[in-house]
Computed example of a mutant assay.
Amino acid sequence: MGRSNEGGKEFIMNTEVGNYLELMADSLVKKGKKLEEVLELTKAQETLLSKEEFDEENFDNLINKKSALIEEINKLDEGFELTYNRVREMIKENPESYKDKIEKLQNSIRTLVDKGVEIEACERRNQIKFDLKVSKGKDKIRSYNLNSNAVTKYYSNMNGSVDGTTYFVDKKK
Rank of each mutant, 00 (worst) to 15 (best):
K133S: 03
I141S: 08
Q106Y: 00
N147F: 10
V151D: 12
T152M: 07
R124N: 12
C122M: 13
E96K: 05
E89T: 15
Q127G: 14
Q127K: 15
N147W: 07
A150T: 09
N94S: 14
G116A: 03
I109A: 13
L105G: 05
I102Q: 06
K133H: 04
R142W: 05
G137T: 02
S148R: 03
Q127E: 15
Q106I: 01
I141A: 09
L112T: 06
R124H: 12
Y155P: 06
I141P: 03
I109M: 10
K101V: 01
D139Y: 06
A121P: 01
A121W: 00
L112N: 13
Y144M: 09
E93Q: 13
M158S: 03
E120Q: 15
K115M: 04
L112M: 11
I102T: 06
S97E: 11
L105Y: 00
I141K: 07
E123C: 02
S156Q: 15
I102F: 01
A150V: 07
R142K: 15
S143F: 03
K99Y: 02
I102K: 07
V151P: 09
Q127Y: 07
Y144I: 06
G116C: 01
F130G: 01
N107I: 02
K99Q: 09
E96P: 05
D100A: 14
Q127R: 14
L146G: 02
K140E: 08
R142Q: 13
E123K: 10
K136V: 05
E103S: 14
I91A: 03
Y154S: 10
R125F: 00
K138W: 02
K138F: 11
N145P: 04
K99A: 05
D139T: 07
E93L: 11
T111A: 09
K153D: 13
S135D: 06
F130R: 01
G160Y: 04
I102L: 12
D131K: 14
N149A: 07
Q106A: 03
A121G: 02
N94A: 10
K140H: 14
E89K: 13
D100G: 11
A150F: 06
S161M: 05
K115P: 00
E93K: 14
K129A: 15
V134E: 11
S97R: 07
K136H: 12
I109V: 08
M90R: 14
S143G: 08
D139S: 10
Q106R: 04
Y154T: 10
E118I: 01
Y154Q: 10
S156D: 13
E120A: 13
R125A: 02
E93N: 14
G137F: 00
Y98N: 00
G137C: 04
F130N: 01
E103Q: 15
I141T: 08
T152Y: 09
M90S: 15
E103C: 08
Y144P: 02
E103H: 13
N145D: 06
S108T: 07
E123V: 08
R125P: 00
V151T: 11
A121Q: 06
G160L: 10
I119A: 14
E93P: 05
V134H: 03
Y98F: 14
N147I: 04
N126I: 02
K136Q: 14
K140P: 00
